[in-house]
Amino acid sequence: MDGIDQFSTSGAYVHAGEEFTRDTNYIEDRITRDGVPGAKGEPGWRVEPDRYRLVVARACPWAHRATIVRRLLGLEDVISLGICGPTHDVRSWTFDLDEGGKDPVLGIERLQQAYFTRFPDYPRGITVPAIVDVPSGAVVTNNFPQITLDFSTEWTDFHRAGAPDLYPEALRDEIDTVNKRVFTEVNNGVYRCGFAGSQAAYDAAYERLFTALDWLSERLAVQRYLVGDSITEADIRLFTTLVRFDAVYHGHFKCNRAKLTEMPVLWAYARDLFQTPGFGDTVNFGQIKQHYYIVHTDLNPTQIVPDGPDESGWSTAHHREGLGGRPFGAGTAPSRPATEG
């Protein structure tokens, strides 16, 4: 989820002398079991099968979370998926991967069109993930932290049999606490390094990032998952940054104290998740690299996309089973093949 000003979809630029600050003003409408009225006075966005389309980009870590949660919970048959290409211009993410360059359900070339349908003068970045109301063609929300929580708590009537509880009520306070630190120091921390506008801003961001990664390594050295003994929302939020770390953040964002592969606990933890259905089968390293290295021309003016790193290590043994726990708790793994996302 990138967005700072009305002219930007990536929202991440180097501003000389400044620390990178992420815009966290989202369209805060929610889709709920009972239907919460919308910001423009709509009668309410109610959970309904086949009404909404989740628009993502495989490249984007914030959208990747929603793709994983949708798959783990088995919501593929009730919430359709639109996939933007890995690159975009200053106006919008585009559907250039689809035939004719148009989303086959929404019939639009740019995600911007769904935003403007609802907010003709929408002043902020056109961001993914976004949920679009298919009948009206209007964006409902781009509030990425809330989207996945609502998938877990408001869409339960449509979860697959055996769907895991990714946000168990008894653990929510701890999950929220962990998520807050992971977001500020890791998920957003890599961006603060990459788009620091001064040496001092970069040095401070670098120190905060690796202090948090050290903390996570210590925590995960004695437990298989971040909170409790099965996968939760917290693991999903951390994974989407870790899986991009060596491919993008280590070099492109100068997060180079160590590669993920040189941090033994986090590397084993990330491989454990990658090899779990719903995680690695939603990763597209090619599109991840294309996005960052082509779009961020202030960091990479040549737009050359690196060939490495070698991806074969992701399938090697992780030996995390010895820490106990069950990936899906009392639930089961998704059995349907990952045919999209």
Rank of each mutant, 00 (worst) to 15 (best):
A170W: 10
A170H: 11
L171E: 15
L171G: 08
R172G: 05
R172F: 06
E174V: 14
E174A: 12
E174T: 15
E174F: 10
I175R: 06
I175Q: 05
I175V: 11
D176A: 13
T177L: 13
K180I: 08
K180M: 14
K180C: 11
R181Q: 15
V182N: 02
E185H: 12
N188M: 09
G189I: 04
V190E: 03
V190R: 00
V190T: 07
G194K: 04
A196K: 09
G197V: 01
S198I: 09
Q199A: 14
A201L: 02
A204N: 13
Y206R: 13
Y206T: 06
E207L: 12
E207Q: 11
T211R: 12
A212S: 15
L213P: 02
D214F: 05
W215E: 13
L216N: 02
L216F: 03
E218R: 14
R219I: 09
A221N: 15
V222N: 09
R224V: 07
R224T: 06
Y225F: 14
S230I: 11
T232M: 13
E233D: 15
A234F: 14
R237I: 10
L238H: 06
L238K: 05
F239H: 02
F239V: 14
T240Y: 00
V243R: 01
V243L: 02
R244E: 03
Y249V: 00
H250S: 04
H250D: 00
C255R: 01
L260C: 03
T261F: 01
M263E: 05
P264Y: 08
Y269I: 06
A270E: 04
D272M: 09
D272C: 07
F274P: 06
T276Y: 04
T276E: 11
G278Y: 05
F279S: 02
F279L: 06
G280R: 02
N284M: 00
N284L: 07
F285I: 12
G286I: 12
Q287W: 11
Q287M: 15
K289S: 03
Q290N: 11
Q290M: 12
Q290V: 10
H291F: 08
Y292W: 06
Y292G: 06
Y293S: 05
Y293A: 01
I294L: 10
H296W: 10
T297N: 15
N300E: 10
P301G: 14
T302K: 07
Q303Y: 12
Q303D: 10
I304A: 14
